[in-house]
Nucleic acid binder design. Structure first.
Length: 496
RNA sequence: GCCCCUAUCGUCUAGCGGCUAGGACAGGAGAUUCUCAUUCUUCAAACCGGGGUUCGAUUCCCCGUGGGGGCACCA
């Protein structure tokens, strides 16, 4: 069965012909009860970035959508660049984003689960040897220069390759046909033997990838478009093993935003690392929502969706074919939308987590009830949790920064010093028990002078917060209490 | 250089032969609120070019061009 290089093995599940209606019939193929097995196979050689996260997400979504199995496989064959720290980061990031895996190493790094292990390539050497033997026995592999090569089938001829500046041996062969779930029919010529075991005895990526996918019975390979060109090699390997290749789905890549420059997003670009969002206390559901929207849409105008909704609506043929540029602004927007609708409890917990990690945090967390009160005021006003420190600093310390520009502006308008003096004088008679009583107090004062609430608001705010932004001034007064308000008003008055 | 993928506002996208080309983010202008943010209203903003096919192309085909990826004893 592997005598042929005529490549129609790539039709995978073998559904019908007619490629012109490919996207139509592919849709019908993804029925909910199928035995879908997908995998995410990162290598722990660097930080976990946006692109990897989205590849993982699309696999996870597809598994959950179809009721299939999501496998985590660790491609840790690169001894030099591997690290346990990066491995940990993969587990943590996936977990943080809510992508649970059915098979693979356990999230705590101890042991693994699933019937197709081991799930770390570093422990699968014996399997690779065994599969190499199959190829050798079938005459589909041979040794040359100390390495082992996969043998293509067909008539051989030599040609001078002017890119590599040397004569190479090519094989006359029909092109490989890939029936891609996202791209439709893709044809690619694979016409040279290639190395599958290096002379140092280690198998190369193409080989282990295919062997693992065969032995783990992976049904759908969902991966970045950068692998599309590799797919022809992989298909030939499947044929070499006498195995029908899985269904392929090559998803578009994430490119740099225009401000970042050209090309695909790399780990070095700002905003490229999942860890960064975790540290900034972004909401994982916002990030998942955003990532899902990069290259996919539900077919209508819906953008903000719960994970459950996305799982329900997601499907491979609906994935776009063109690359998408990363837009941090839109992600920030989504994060804000999610933040606004968090239950108070959840928001306070998030805030605690955040303050626990910043220098000024201890002071902020000293009084639980007071902290809660302030976070409740801040939640509807901020866009991300990491603004909280700057946004609420004046509640926790008398030594807060004063915005010079705001001060100049406020102090130049009307007669702020007189207003300050009047406020200080009126303070002792004011009732600070609720926002409404504070408001009534200021209004009474203003009316008595023939002025409005607004004539006192700006200067009072400057005095107690050092800026022109924040929750309502009445709430700030109440929470701060008369003593602190009085001393801050006086301080501003004295400062000129 | 060769191969593969791709192409609608600045960005993410809807559109699957006939539409005033829709939505969202970002940007502009207003409104509301004690400030700020939110919210609301509103404005500006796109079918890469050239050939076909068709009564009719953003849509289908071809060729350019642009963008992306791949061409290893890396993964």
């Amino acid at each position: 069965m592997w005598q042929t290089c005529l490549g129609s093995g790539a039709t995978g599940g073998g559904t019908g012909s007619g490629f012109d209606s490919a996207r139509g019939f592919l849709l019908a193929r993804t029925s909910p009860m199928s035995q879908v097995r997908v995998r995410f196979a990162p290598s722990p050689t660097g930080f976990f970035h946006i692109g990897s996260a989205r590849t993982a997400l699309f696999n996870w979504l597809y598994a959950r959508h179809t009721g299939g199995t999501f496998i985590l496989r660790i491609e840790d064959t690169d001894q030099a660049r591997n690290s346990e720290e990066f491995l940990r980061l993969i587990y943590d990031s996936l977990t943080w984003l809510g992508m649970d895996w059915d098979e693979g190493p356990n999230p705590n790094g101890v042991g693994e689960r699933g019937a197709f292990g081991p799930y770390r390539q570093s422990q699968r050497a014996h399997i690779y040897k065994e599969y190499l033997q199959k190829l050798l026995a079938a005459g589909r592999a041979y040794e040359k220069d100390g390495a082992i090569w996969f043998k293509m089938l067909g008539e051989r001829y030599k040609v001078f390759d002017d890119h590599r500046k040397k004569e190479v041996e090519k094989v006359k062969c029909d092109p490989v046909v890939i029936d891609d779930q996202i791209r439709g029919r893709v044809e690619r010529q694979e016409d040279e033997d290639f190395v599958i075991f290096r002379s140092d005895g280690n198998p190369v990526f193409h080989f282990v990838n295919v062997v693992d996918d065969i032995t783990m019975q992976v049904s759908h390979i969902i991966r970045g478009e950068d692998h599309l060109s590799n797919t022809s090699k992989h298909v030939r390997l499947y044929e070499g093993f006498g195995v029908t290749p899985p269904v392929f789905a090559h998803i578009p890549l994430i490119l740099k935003s225009p401000e970042m420059g050209q090309g695909k997003m790399s780990k070095r670009d700002k905003g490229a690392l999942i860890e960064e969002y975790q540290q900034r206390h972004f909401l994982p559901e916002a990030l998942v929502n955003y990532l899902a929207l990069l290259g996919w849409n539900p077919g209508d105008d819906r953008e903000k969706m719960t994970v459950a909704e996305i799982v329900q609506l997601f499907d491979l043929p609906a994935v776009n074919q063109s690359n998408a540029k990363f837009d941090g602004k839109k992600l920030a927007y989504l994060n804000m939308v999610y933040l606004l609708e968090q239950p108070t409890e959840k928001f306070v917990a998030l805030a605690k987590d955040y303050f626990a990690k910043i220098p000024a945090g201890a002071a902020a967390l000293a009084n639980e009830a007071y902290f809660r009160e302030i976070m409740t005021l801040a939640q509807p006003k901020i866009k991300s949790v990491d603004e909280l420190g700057a946004y609420t600093g004046y509640f926790f310390s008398d030594d807060f920064p004063v915005d010079a520009k705001v001060k100049d502006k406020v102090m130049a308008k009307g007669d702020p010093k007189t207003r300050l003096t009047e406020l200080i004088a009126a303070l002792s008679a004011m009732d600070f028990s609720t926002d409404a009583t504070v408001e009534a107090g200021i209004k009474t004062l203003a009316e008595g002078k023939g002025l409005g609430f607004g004539d006192y608001q700006a200067v009072a705010r400057l005095a107690v917060t050092g800026t022109n932004a924040g929750p309502s001034i009445t709430a700030i007064f109440r929470v701060l209490g008369k003593d602190r308000v009085a001393s801050r008003l006086q301080k501003l008055l004295a400062s000129g």
